[in-house]
Amino acid sequence: MHYRRGKGIETMHQAAYKYALSKGKRRDTRDAYLMLLPFLLLFSFFIVLPILSSIFLGFTYFDMIQMPQFLGVKNYVRMFLDDDVFLKALSNTVVFAVITGPIGYMSCFIFAWLINELPPRVRSVLTFIFYVPTISGSIYIMWTYIFSGDSYGLINGVLRNLGLINKPIQFLTDPKYVLSVIMLVQIWMSLGTAFLSFIAGLQNVDKQLYEAGAIDGIRNRWQELFYITLPSMGPQLQFGAVMQIGASFSVSQIAIALAGFPSTDNAATTIVTHIMDVGNLRYEMGYASAISVFLFAIMLFTNFLLRNILRAVTKDD
């Protein structure tokens, strides 16, 4: 920050004001924009543009072979009034998000908090171990073996050995079980980027605050957690919330890999798998776009809600 030593000592505010108008600032601003440019281009092209075209297509009938035909709001009407599968998908997705989102989020935090106590080497190893399911991409497929409906599948085999069941349980095709199985696997996979950011955030809390707190009368760990740790981790908590809970609305890969596509009786259909089904299998890309716009709206809304809650918790201005 430059301020000229001129006629007397200027206040920081005056200096800042002058800087804001100066050539230097404009040059810095221009450089900043230039550095952002590649990302902005890619972002507009691959994210903003598809979103806009989705919104547009949501109002049409488009089978990907012929040009789109305008339909008005018919797709949205159909979505809410005429599509049982969509409503089931919506309920499944909400159940998913409500259960795996916060649980995943909290477990990220708890694990990060526990690991924080350990010496750095051990901490790195453990971080790696917990993060591995997310990096490895498709390792959750092993759960298909564990939950296999073959009488020699892992869980079925063990239960039969113990004499608890006679016929193997079809975990992945029986509507009674499949949603719970997928939620379990999702939670298992939930130690993702939020986890990493929490670990970083915990490390960066200023140690002096703990000392000050100890002096000021903080009696136990819980108080420390609520009065010092959490408020200092505002940005990480928000980031984690967006990543974790936002992502839980778009569960689809795991559902497809485990329960099949489509799942029995749509027991494990989520909004995203429904979109994929409608768009790719049924050639109704217009309707699929309408659903995806709706999903987008839900996620925006949730994001907004979460930030406000977190603002309150962390008292972040």
């Binding site: 526990l114 690991i115 106590e117 350990l118 051990v122 453990l126 171990i129 136990n220 760990r221």
Partner: peptide
Amino acid sequence: MRRIRKISAWLMVFSIC
């Protein structure tokens, strides 16, 4: 409390191993 936290953290390590 710190000790309990430490113990539980190490327990986690051992159970993973």
